[in-house]
């Protein structure tokens, strides 16, 4: 397997090329660009919600458990189960876990950290984080892919081992 990478000057050019490549039957395609592109489905909001709810519930349960069961103390004549006072900490723990699960969930979903991938060997990729948009085609027939990319106005085409 080989990876063929073609670089485009802007997103429009890349999108145009991408559509035509798909039509041409290339399926294992990944694109790279220097700015967020494309809306789409992601499981992460749900992960974050779950993390937050779990954190808040855990925080509340834990405070209740310590004050009511594990070590009940008379503090200022307040009821042992002073639930309003437990809300701030439950909220904060919830937020902490939500944000942590968002960030770490992102890493898990994207299988990060992965410091090196075969596609990185393509010199064109060096500018994919600045001002170039790249299309990487993983294929058994690199010649066809190179040809197609050149045809769809890639500025530069590289081929690396997958």
């Amino acid at each position: 397997m080989r990876i063929v990478v073609g670089a485009f000057p802007d997103e429009t050019a890349m999108q145009a090329a991408l559509g035509r490549l798909r039509e041409a039957g290339f399926n294992a395609i990944e694109t790279y660009g220097p700015k967020p592109a494309g809306e789409g489905h992601s499981p992460l909001p749900l992960v974050i919600l779950a993390g937050g709810l779990f954190g808040a519930a855990l925080g509340f349960w834990w405070q209740t458990h310590e004050t009511v069961q594990a070590y009940p103390l008379d503090i200022g004549g307040r009821p042992l189960f002073s639930w309003p006072a437990y809300v701030p900490i439950a909220l904060e723990i919830g937020i902490l876990l939500a944000i942590a699960s968002g960030v770490f969930g992102f890493f898990v979903v994207n299988r990060m950290p992965r410091l090196w991938e075969p596609v990185d060997d393509a010199p064109a990729m060096r500018r994919a984080t600045s001002d170039r948009w790249c299309i990487a085609i993983t294929t058994e027939t690199p010649e066809q892919a190179r040809h197609a990319l050149w045809r769809f106005a890639a500025l530069e085409v590289d081929e690396v081992a997958a």
Partner: peptide, 19 residues
């Protein structure tokens, strides 16, 4: 950490950052 601007990364990134 291996962020390289792939469309998958950007898709998750965009949603996560917003949330």
């Amino acid at each position: 950490l291996g962020f390289r601007g792939s469309s998958t990364q950007w898709r998750h990134y965009h949603v996560t950052y917003g949330v």
